[in-house]
Write a protein that binds this DNA or RNA. Sequence first.
DNA 1: GAGTTTGAAACT
DNA 2: CAGTTTCAAACTC
Length: 742
Amino acid sequence: MDVVSPELNILLPDEIMDTEAIVMDDDPPAESPAASGQSQPSDDAPIPMETDVLAVPEIVTSTLTSTTPKTTTSLGGVSLTSGGLQKLSANHQIILNKVASSPGADTTRSPGTTTITPGGQKFMVTAIGKSGQSIVLQLPHTGSKPGSGQGEAKANPQHFKVLTIGGRTDLKPVMVGQAVSSASQISTLQAQQLKTVQIAKKTQVSSAGPIKFIITKAVNNKGLTAQTSVSNVITGRVLSTSSPVTPPRTITLSETLSSNSKIAISPLKSPSKLTMVSVASQVPNSPQKSVSLPLNMAHLGQQILVQQSTATSPAKVVSINHQPMKPVQTVTVGGPQFKTIFPLSTSSNVQQIQVPGSRFHYVRLVTATTGSSTGQAGSHCTNSSMTAKPMVVNTAQVRMSVPIIPAQTMKQVVPKPLTSSGQVLTTQTQQRLIMPATPLPQIQPNLTNLPPGTMLAPGSGNMGYTVLPAHYVTQLQQSAYVTLASSSGFPTPTGIQTQARLPLNGLSTSDAASRPRKPCNCNKSQCLKLYCDCFANGEFCQSCNCTNCFNNLEHETERAKAIKACLDRNPEAFKPKIGKGKEGESDRRHSKGCNCKRSGCLKNYCECYEAKIMCSSTCKCVGCKNFEESPERKTLMHLADAAEVRVQQQTAAKTKLSSQISDLFTRTTPAITSGGGRMPFTFVTKEVAEATCECLLEQAEQAELIQQPQATAERMILEEFGRCLMRIISSAGKTDCPSINC
DNA sequence: GAGTTTGAAACT
DNA sequence: CAGTTTCAAACTC
């Protein structure tokens, strides 16, 4: 089973990739108690997760044992017991059930079974859960890669998927090699690739507190190397290639304790890389509830795709055991085999999680209701294609963190405290479509008021999915923000802000958040065509000048259809056109290349030039001048540089002038108030001017009386004026109302 | 601000 | 796949 695409896992942030508590089991057959028993060197695995701090993280291996399925960990004075790992070889399920499972737990499954997929894939599941909690990893047979049969599992290099579920309270950088090393102690295979899927449940002092599940690593059942994985990540395509005979893979995480749970799921990219996450929160002593989420999160372009579970293309299902199981409507996006969905529970919130240094945006789906809604599965829409795949959305509080876009230009936002009960605009449990995200999501102020769960706004019609631009998630995040490093439960505002204000990708929160996005001016496309930059970037139109805009939540259905149409035409329509190579590097090129004819590729008409990259061999441009040695390009660049320098100089000059003016006022203000050295307008009052004029007229009259020549008279007047000025100046600093006496 | 140019997207 | 049309951004005046 591929929980997370290995390619993308490589790019996952260390915070997520970190797995201090990793259980490795080379090839523990489910039927081999001895092997499983060998693979549990430690029973307690307090997995440091996020903000919590654990002194000594330990590896929990008891989940792989069939004889002693119980795993107990103590964190913060809270003892957690993880159930045994159960395997359903028929459908390749891995079930982690606590010994003290809840009454609703599946008792038909023998605890303590390890998990090995037929394709040789393994799930390393560490569980530090609460009593009664069950975790089910259900793996499809898609792994049925050639030569990946179960019988060959030991002979071939295998990919391990380590799923850690525990009370890790702090995410510390842990090298994968460490995990491998730890695994080697209990593993007989040394050449296995290790990918970790971490579901870290955060222990809480209070049993009702939130629990976080983070799945960070997935195993590549193709045995892809890290290098190949990276390349696939760049391609950004996620294709689900589940064979018709491949049974669905499901991961079911059941939490007996009602609490917040979040899951960080790295996107999937490669075919047959499927992400299924099921998280169910359950109230103690309540019937076990589960949520089955056919969640195939793929990184398609900038999308999260969920493969539809059909007879011909088995879906990889994130299922949370729920009673009763109900089918869930899905929406096919990007081809018949793909479903772009984002299943949400009845009352869910979407929160964007930003991890410093991460190239991904993480979206956390959070049920709005903190309390457990026992037996409340919400409404479920039935899709003919999904009838065979029952899906029950947990109404309990569940959090899922899903990286949805590459954070090439990751934006940070200042989060706001998450309310414990987010506003939910929809009352139906519907799968939602996470739509193409934008490389640079913008915060749209007019949506910042949307409370948590707004992404579930009505208007989806019969479509069970919400098209959710990443920027919109960001917007939601402003209202409801949960950080990966947040402590258990809803994070406190202080903690949130501290987390959010961390510089990210060189962008401060304010910088990234304040960056305006150019509004579109679409008129005829309804902003539902790729003509519209907003739509093409996976953003809602906000503060645009468009007319008849359908690129908003109010037209969710139309928008979803438009997205589907675009993906039908071009599955990579929402994929970034510019490669992810670092700026200035040769690999940063236009994916399709331009087709310029007249602009010489030296105007913004050219997408290459607009992206500040040079045209490449993929371009079909005519008369291209946008190449390295192009004199025109160099000239243009020089002009641009010169212009930039000019602008900078002008800016500096303006700044300096403003500073000087400000300084002048600063220095003169005290004089004004004190009366000494006041500005002229403060003491050359009307009265003073009139007095001065009278003095001058008086002087003129005297000159006439003594019959002085005009020149002498003028001189006398000027001299008098000089005396007046001297008196004005001398009196300015003495009294508020200087007197002028001739 | 109106009109033109341009090239990507959409369409046939 | 190629040619044409549509569209909105870029550009010019």
